[in-house]
């Protein structure tokens, strides 16, 4: 494949034709922040936190999706770029609960000096986000900053949806749809600030096309989609990542050979992920690999650790 030469912040880079600016940046060790981008999904370039300045382009350009061109001159740290990135982080963090995002994102927010508090006090949680009508909203008086805070959706034993944490990155929709699962159980509904991830008519997942593969959980960057086990343990304040070990293994259900990362705390599997850079399924799984782990820890009488008690209680309520 042909190589394309370009210049990034004064450094010469050369990447295969068809690469994105983001890939080119990474090739010269200049990481860029991203929110809606993931290696195993089609870029939707919706969050705009990865924007860069490209010479002869009037507008900033999303690096995650724009293909490189010969001779391109890219700047990733100009005043305009820094401003846009800071504002995008502020916009997201002033409207969405962000306390479970990864360390890297937090560092980027600090780097750009994002201060979400300057938009005012956060509004209270609202109960009507699933029924808002497009083209209409209550006229604000400006005394508080609108947000997406709302009650968490707990409608099955396997995973929960906490859309107060949803930044609308479209990743779960892509994973559920054409990029992986082809179930199309969830889609974006509503419009504008009231746009939201939803099943048809907000029906419970158990009544939807969801097959509980958990691939949406696997791609969610904010903890909006979460194993029920993790959710219950966090609620009981016994979730402790420092105490967890991660063991790579191969799913034993069928012959595909999906790799599993078993997250274990106190000798209990508390969640299952799959390595995104693995060639067999690019990090995606089915319900058996994702959630079918109970049989390896069928403990019978011995099930009496705090984790067992918390999860048993959740199952019966």
């Amino acid at each position: 494949m042909n190589e394309v030469a370009l210049n990034i912040d004064g450094v010469a880079a050369s990447v295969p034709e068809g690469s994105t600016i983001l890939e080119a940046c990474r090739s010269v060790d200049k990481p860029q922040p991203t929110l809606c981008y993931l290696e195993n999904l089609t870029p939707v370039n919706a969050c705009r936190v990865c924007v860069v300045e490209v010479e002869n382009n009037r507008l900033l350009v999303p690096s995650c999706s724009r293909p490189v061109e010969e001779g391109m001159v890219v700047n990733t740290d100009t005043e305009r770029v820094r401003h846009s990135r800071k504002m995008v982080f502020e916009f997201v963090a002033s409207s969405v609960q962000m306390d479970l995002v990864d360390e890297e994102t937090r560092e980027w927010m600090d780097y750009y000096g994002a201060d979400p508090s300057r938009y005012g006090n956060p509004a209270a949680s609202s109960l009507d986000r699933d029924s808002r009508h497009p083209g209409h909203h209550p006229i604000p008086d400006g005394s508080e900053a609108a947000n997406v805070h709302q009650p968490i959706k707990v409608d099955n034993d396997l995973y929960v949806r906490d859309y107060s944490r949803c930044i609308l990155c479209y990743k779960c929709v892509e994973a559920c749809g054409e990029d992986a699962q082809n179930s199309f159980a969830i889609a974006v509904s509503g419009r504008g600030f009231d746009a939201r991830i939803s099943t048809e008519f907000d029906t419970p997942l158990t009544n939807s096309a969801c097959v509980f593969c958990g691939n949406c959980i696997g791609v969610c960057p904010t903890g909006a989609l979460m194993f029920r086990s993790e959710y219950e343990m966090r609620k009981a304040e016994i979730w402790d990542e420092d105490e967890q070990s991660v063991t790579r293994t191969i799913c034993s259900y069928c012959a595909v050979g999906c790799n599993l990362d078993l997250h274990v705390q106190d000798n209990r599997i508390v969640k299952v992920t799959s390595p995104i850079d693995h060639s067999i399924t690019d990090g995606h799984l089915c319900i058996k690999g994702r959630f079918g782990y109970e049989y390896v820890q069928d403990l019978g009488e011995m099930a009496s650790t705090p984790i067992d008690i918390v999860l048993a209680r959740a199952r019966t309520t």
Partner: peptide, 22 residues
């Protein structure tokens, strides 16, 4: 009202803009 809601600058920026004017 008319923002499609796809991208963050417009989806949230238009809300903050209205709040400031309000």
């Amino acid at each position: 009202d008319e923002s499609c809601g796809q991208c963050v600058p417009c989806r949230v920026g238009t809300v903050r803009q209205e709040e400031l004017l309000a």
